[in-house]
Design a protein around this nucleic acid. Structure first.
Lengths: 199, 199
DNA sequence: ACCTTAAAGCAAAATCCTTGCGTCAAGCCG
DNA sequence: CGGCTTGACGCAAGGATTTTGCTTTAAGGT
């Protein structure tokens, strides 16, 4: 069903995989996402369609694979010397990338052709790893910090919910507000939280 | 691209739409979700495949349409006489339904064939409407309550994030913990939140 | 009752997906 | 170093799906 074989680096499989991935990226930029087909991609990559079908099974699984690669962070988050600054900067950049039209497309693709939830899980792991780095820095500085799960629940999840389930665009201020609400101790008023800042 | 025409009730279009939707539901139960094809559905519905392609454009958009219908709540949430009880019960049931294998499939389908984010937005609106009812009841009782956006950010979004991005199953206790953390004022300790209960 | 318009039926053509079989490359063992 | 095993790829045929032009039917309005 989902072959997705192990690929040893340098082998022929690796070359084919890279060639196909590159073809997807090129054609996506040239003809647009909706016009992608397996035969088209295969032709550009210099392989036969059946190779693509056997390795990925499906156009969506292939796009999912490529999307995950594009969503992989290319380096550790910037260090601003302070937990709040680190988290805010990371969240703002994350939101900006994910909320952009191409970003949304990648997130949806990663989620899409993915019966096992395997690719989506990898995306989540990427974010968790970045957050873990930020929190570890805070711990090194002696700052008290929430744990990764809490940051995911309170910051990452709301942002992705908006990206996936609501089409309206929203500024990076939303990310800042979420981080602020997470870190700032809240006055023990009633059940209600203080209203978020700029919306 | 996305025809999705206006459908006057009682007209032929409405009959076709209902017939096709019914065919999807029946066949999904009979042959399984993965074996669904447009020609198969069209045959069961007593229409030609081209009708389905013209109206929905695509198998995924059709499945998305059907999924949204299945995700529509069938009634107002139960009234337990207390905000915390209402929210907890609703969140637990929501999580249970959405985290089940069929529930996950519906959520994914609703998100999937949906270039405009239109169907997904409708799902979000369903949940928001249910929450608004619960919060309005609380206001009627004079209870202080958060607003809908906050419940979505703190309860709905984390649950859906887990459903979509992490394959591990989790109990309804997660829903209860989220509601508790939302409603309970938190001791103004350091930046860190108190750990959630059972995980 | 006729007219207008939008959607559905029909059928052909194009495209895509699947599959069996032969070939080739990569890793492994002698 | 050379033969062997395994897995992936190319090729091509077959079947299924998707697209499309044209015709027909039904719904709503005049």
């Amino acid at each position: 069903m989902s072959p997705r074989p192990m690929v040893r680096p340098g082998g022929r499989s690796a070359r084919v995989q890279e060639s196909v991935h590159a073809a997807v990226r090129e054609l996506e930029a040239e003809v647009g996402r909706g016009a992608l087909t397996v035969p088209l991609i295969a032709a550009r990559a210099g392989v036969t369609p059946s190779t693509v079908y056997r390795r990925w099974g499906d156009l969506q699984e292939l796009l999912s694979d490529v999307a995950v690669e594009r969503l992989r962070p290319d380096g550790p988050p910037e260090d601003h010397g302070d937990l709040a600054a680190d988290l805010t900067a990371w969240a703002e950049q994350f939101l900006e990338e994910m909320a952009s039209p191409p970003g949304r497309a990648y997130v949806r693709d990663a989620l899409l052709g993915d019966p096992d939830g395997d690719n989506a899980g990898q995306c989540s792991d990427y974010a968790a790893a970045q957050i873990a780095i930020i929190l570890a820095r805070a711990a090194d500085r002696g700052q008290r910090a929430p744990d990764v799960e809490e940051v995911i629940d309170r910051v990452v999840a709301p942002m992705l919910y908006r990206i996936l389930f609501r089409r309206g665009s929203f500024g990076t201020g939303y990310a800042r507000d979420l981080v602020t609400a997470l870190l700032a101790p809240r006055e023990p008023s009633a059940g209600a939280n203080p209203p978020l800042g700029g919306r």
